[in-house]
Design a protein around this nucleic acid. Structure first.
Lengths: 158, 158
DNA sequence: TCTAGTTCCTGTAGCAGCTACAGGAACAAG
DNA sequence: CTTGTTCCTGTAGCTGCTACAGGAACTAGA
């Protein structure tokens, strides 16, 4: 009767491949999430295959979205716990999100510092020989300007 | 005669602890760099301890600086190769730096998108009960708004 | 000379967050 | 019954480190 690959047992419920297709989350990743207890272990068919209901789909989409927004798995775990049966206040949820927002802001600030430095440096590129390359000048420590040709002097036991 | 912990063999040259202190790079990290061939294996004392010369110090500082600027180890390897004995043009070095700069820029752009979305969302925090939390609304997929209390229905073998 | 304390050595395992196998069992369709 | 697909478990790999364990080498003091 059903022509889609709905398989066995209770007819509603997806197998892992379908869940993966519907959520855009890799199969191996789904199993990984189960292993690290991000997702509850779903029931199985008699043959041992996982069957997922709408709740799991929803949870997985939640996780995926949160990952896209850069939340760590631990943060997501906390969010799921707050949204869960215990119930909590919105401000607790916001606290996690705000902390994450702070992290994002400081990451942006760091990257912008890098960007300024690097683009200033790259702009000086001369296309000439390497010894005068501005990029290498920024990278190499300015102090030790010693002769680069002093190798293999010490010993060499072993 | 020497009161500083310069040990054995040729008197110039640092042991790994001193190198670590001077460069600010963790001892274990230095050995790790050697293992993955970021740093050449240095000569050893008869007792088997590594002795580093000024070139190694310089290289390690280079690596550290490049890491601070967010270059990957592979990129740094490439930079070191270019700066090395083969010599290359400044534009080759700049090519690597420019690619890295592009990565930084797109990371910044991504993070700023996140930042806007998250801060807009967090701003709506009501401090009230969870069901109406704006953060969770953003995270949860808008489609499936089904009853959350339908668990443990399918089967439960195993 | 013996001993204590420090530094160093190798090798292995762990972190996040996956991804990619190998080798086998279960299923659907011809 | 066979073929092909999907699924299963378990393990190892990725990046860039960090942290151990268990032992060897060195220094300084008694």
């Amino acid at each position: 009767m059903p022509k889609h690959p709905i398989t066995d047992a209770r007819a509603d419920g997806l197998m892992i491949g379908e869940l993966s297709r519907q959520t855009g989350v890799n199969i191996e990743t789904i199993r990984y999430y189960e292993r690290i207890k991000m997702l509850p272990a779903p029931p199985r068919t008699t043959g041992g295959r996982r069957i997922y209901g709408p709740l799991e789909t929803r949870t997985l989409l939640f996780i995926r979205r949160a990952r896209e927004l850069g939340f760590s798995l631990d943060q997501i775990r906390a969010l799921l716990a707050l949204g869960g049966p215990g119930k909590a206040t919105c401000s607790e949820v916001c606290a996690i999100a705000t902390r994450h927002l702070d992290e994002i802001c400081s990451k942006i600030a760091d990257l912008q510092k890098l960007k300024r430095l690097l683009s200033r440096t790259v702009a000086q590129c001369s296309s000439d020989a390497v010894p005068d390359c501005a990029v290498l000048d920024v990278l190499y420590p300015p102090a030790v300007k010693t002769n680069t040709t002093m190798r293999g002097k010490v010993n060499a036991s072993r």
